[in-house]
Amino acid sequence: MEKIATNCNNEIAYIREGQGFPVILIHGLDGNMASLYSLKDALKHSFDVIVYDVRGHGKSTKRHSFNLEDHVEDLKALMTKLDISSAHLIGHDMGGLIAKHFTDKYKTRVATLTLIACNLIDSVHALNKLMIDHQEEIEGFDKSEALILLLPYMYKEKEKAKKWYQNQLIYSRQTADDSAVATRALMEFPVLKKDVIIKQTDVPTLIVNGVYDPLMTNETIEKYNYAFTRLQMQSFNASGHAPHIEEPKHFLDVYNNFIMSQVFQKE
C-alpha cells in the first residue's frame, strides 16, 4: 500500500497492480479498498488496476467535514499523480456516485463507467429505511454491528457477504463519527430528491444490480434508461447488494464482454 497527497494535506491510500489499460475501483460507503481486493486480483491479469480508500475511509485521511466534490477531486489528483490520463471506472454503492459525478465533470478522462449496486437517487435514504424497518433487531447496536445483523436482508449469498464484510473490518474499522461524516458528505449530493433528473452521460456505461438488493427500486432503475445514452444493464439473479462478490465469475464475464464490446465498436 502507498499514499499520495491531494489537497490540504489529505492523503489517499492506494494499491496498484497489473498491467494494461488502467481500471480504477471505488468502494462503497463505510467500506474500504479491501472490499475490492478480489475484483482487483481478477482484473490485474488484463489491466493496470488501482484500488484506493476514498477520503474518510480505510487508511486515507479522515476529516471532520468533506463533500462529494472532495471525493471527485481526490480521484482526479490520484489519476494525475499516477500519470493516468484516462481509465475505466468501477464503483460499488457510494463508489458509483463518485464515479458518476467524476464522469459528469471530467468526461474525457473516463473510458467506460461501471456502476455496481449504485442507487443514484436516494442511496442514503434507502439504507436508513432498511434500518428503520428492522429497528427492533438492531436496537442497541452501532452501525457496523447493525450492518452485520442486516446481512440476511441485503444479500442473497449471505456467507460470501459475511466473509467479505469481515475482511473489510480486519483491514480497517469505521468509527461512528467517521461514518456520520461520510454520510453527510453524500447528503449534499443533489440526487437525493426523488424528482431530480440524473445528468445525462454518453460515456459507455455498464450497470449491474442484484435482484435481491433492497436498496434498489424499479423507479430508480427505470430512470437510468434515460440518463445514459450508451447503456448496458445487467440484473444478477443470485445477488443482493454486492453482485461482484456474490456472483464473481458472472460479474467478471459480464465486465470483460462489456469492455470487449467497446473495443470492437472503436475498430
Score class of each variant (00 low, 15 high):
residue 84 I to N: 14
residue 107 K to S: 13
residue 85 S to E: 13
residue 127 L to A: 10
residue 124 V to I: 14
residue 82 L to A: 07
residue 64 H to E: 13
residue 121 I to E: 04
residue 79 M to L: 06
residue 89 L to Q: 09
residue 82 L to D: 11
residue 43 L to W: 10
residue 97 L to N: 04
residue 78 L to T: 10
residue 18 G to M: 07
residue 102 F to D: 11
residue 30 D to W: 03
residue 25 L to C: 08
residue 110 V to I: 14
residue 91 G to N: 08
residue 126 A to K: 06
residue 78 L to F: 13
residue 122 D to I: 00
residue 25 L to H: 08
residue 106 Y to H: 08
residue 37 Y to I: 00
residue 21 F to Q: 12
residue 38 S to E: 12
residue 130 L to C: 09
residue 102 F to Y: 13
residue 91 G to L: 06
residue 76 K to S: 09
residue 82 L to E: 01
residue 28 G to Y: 09
residue 124 V to R: 08
residue 104 D to R: 00
residue 92 H to D: 04
residue 27 H to T: 14
residue 90 I to W: 15
residue 43 L to F: 14
residue 107 K to W: 01
residue 73 E to I: 10
residue 93 D to S: 14
residue 108 T to Y: 05
residue 112 T to A: 06
residue 63 R to T: 15
residue 71 H to A: 00
residue 106 Y to I: 02
residue 47 F to S: 01
residue 111 A to M: 12
residue 64 H to Q: 08
residue 79 M to R: 04
residue 95 G to I: 11
residue 96 G to C: 00
residue 69 E to F: 13
residue 120 L to I: 03
residue 110 V to K: 04
residue 79 M to Q: 04
residue 95 G to R: 07
residue 89 L to D: 05
residue 24 I to R: 10
residue 120 L to N: 03
residue 81 K to R: 12
residue 123 S to I: 13
residue 51 V to Q: 01
residue 83 D to G: 02
residue 111 A to T: 14
residue 126 A to E: 10
residue 115 L to H: 04
residue 28 G to S: 11
residue 46 S to T: 07
residue 33 M to N: 03
residue 132 I to M: 10
residue 105 K to A: 05
residue 128 N to R: 12
residue 111 A to Q: 11
